[in-house]
Structures are given as structure tokens and as C-alpha cells.
């Protein structure tokens, strides 16, 4: 028991002394996963709105694909991206393998179906009368869609947070395409795995605490947002 407490104590020391390595890892994680979620929302939200609000052939297929990708194993995504970005692969000339860029691509692919599927549910739950109101007030098709998205904003924000939670904790793809290089692609999840493997539980715990804190802050923020909206 006391070695867990000792670990916690050292973890707090690492955080409070602003240990450079620890903070590099934290900021890298936030940067990579933040960018990935931003990209994924640029793809996922329009996709969800399109499928949720319009009828067209193939709509059911897209919905099914989105829901399937929800549970996409991260290592499988990692492997595919590795094969594409490897110097032998079709995109090898980009030189993206083992860079944050590769990790952003992988995490974008992981987050897009989640954000897409949850946005779909979000826009579907908006009162259809909103669409009619907007059109009657002179909105174009795109403006109408935007109005519906605005109505669904809290649910969409929740979708982004779920997506963010998925990618920042994900380890399989980050390890394969990032390579866990210190200072470049070592993020919280891969660092936790490495440090645990090394038996250095302090840093692993410190990062675990940070991950939990981030999750807590985001959820608290979401809760607060919902409260002031009501």
C-alpha cells in the first residue's frame, strides 16, 4: 500500500515542480489530440448533419459504417496508417511516419466516426419544426442546416468530448505510427505504458492524474455549459 502512496507523492512532486519532460508529454498530447479532434469535427459534424437531415440513397449504409467504425480497434487503424506512411507504402514520400502528423492522421480517423455518429443522433433529436421555421424566415439550405446544428450544439459538444476522450487515451495507433519517441511523439498514453513497463510508476501515475484531471475539467465545463443554457 505504501508504495502506491509513495508513487502518488512523487507524481505530485513531478507535477508541482513543473518537470520539463512531464509537461512536454502533456502539451504534446493536448496538441496532437486537440488538432485531431478539430480535424475530425470538420469532417464528422458535416457528415452527421448530412446523413441526419437529408434523405438520399446510401444513407443507411453510411449510418451502419459510422456505427461500425465507432468500435474500430485502434491498433488496426495504426497498422493501416503505418502501411500507408511507411517508406515502402504509397504515402512514404511524405516522410510523416514517426511524427506528430502521423498521429494526428490516425487519431482523426479514430475520432471522425465517433463525432459523425454522435452528431447524427444530435441533429436527429432536434425538433423538425426548427427546420421549417428557419426556411420560413428565409434561410438557405446551408443556413438551415447550421441553424439545426446550433440547436444541437450541446449534444455536438458532448460528441467532441467523447471523441477527444477516445483519442487522448488511445495507445495502439499512437505507439505504431508515432513510435513513442521522446520529446517528439511520446504522449501521455504511450508514456504511461512505457513507464509502467519500466517499473517507473511515479511518472506513469503523474500522467494518469493529469489525464483524469483533464477529463474531469472537460466534463465539469460541459456540465456548466449545459446548466447556463437551460
Amino acid at each position: 500500500m505504501d508504495y502506491i502512496l509513495a508513487g502518488l507523492k512523487e507524481a505530485l512532486q513531478l507535477l508541482l515542480s513543473f518537470d520539463r519532460e512531464t509537461y512536454t508529454i502533456i502539451f504534446l498530447s493536448l496538441r496532437i489530440s486537440g488538432t485531431a479532434v478539430l480535424l475530425a469535427s470538420c469532417l464528422g459534424i458535416p457528415l452527421g448533419a448530412l446523413v441526419g437531415l437529408h434523405r438520399f440513397p446510401g444513407r443507411g449504409v453510411i449510418t451502419t459504417i459510422l456505427n461500425t467504425c465507432f468500435a474500430l480497434p485502434t491498433v488496426v487503424v495504426g497498422l493501416f496508417i503505418y502501411l500507408f506512411l511507411s517508406h515502402r507504402g504509397p504515402l512514404g514520400m511524405l516522410g510523416l511516419l514517426y511524427t506528430p502528423g502521423a498521429m494526428i492522421i490516425a487519431q482523426t480517423i479514430l475520432a471522425t466516426p465517433i463525432i459523425g455518429a454522435l452528431s447524427l443522433v444530435a441533429v436527429k433529436s432536434v425538433d423538425p419544426a426548427i427546420t421549417k421555421s428557419a426556411i420560413s424566415l428565409g434561410a438557405t439550405r446551408i443556413q438551415t442546416t447550421l441553424a439545426v446544428l446550433r440547436e444541437a450544439r450541446v449534444a455536438i459538444l458532448a460528441a467532441l468530448i467523447v471523441g477527444f476522450g477516445r483519442v487522448i487515451t488511445e495507445i495502439g495507433a499512437a505507439m505504431i505510427v508515432g513510435g513513442n519517441i521522446k520529446g517528439t511523439t511520446r504522449v501521455m498514453s504511450t508514456a504511461i505504458a512505457l513507464e509502467t513497463g519500466k517499473g517507473k510508476f511515479e511518472l506513469a501515475l503523474a500522467l494518469g492524474i493529469i489525464l483524469l484531471t483533464i477529463a474531469f475539467l472537460i466534463n465539469a465545463g460541459l456540465y456548466y455549459l449545459q446548466r447556463i443554457r437551460e
Partner: peptide, 14 residues
């Protein structure tokens, strides 16, 4: 459509 406007029976506001 922009030259006329309809107020619905049970208006749904944003």
C-alpha cells in the same frame, strides 16, 4: 420566400 414569412401555429423558437 424571403419576401414573405409564416408564423406557425405553435412557433418553435431557436
Amino acid at each position: 420566400q424571403r419576401r414573405m414569412t409564416l408564423v406557425f401555429q405553435k412557433p418553435v423558437l431557436f
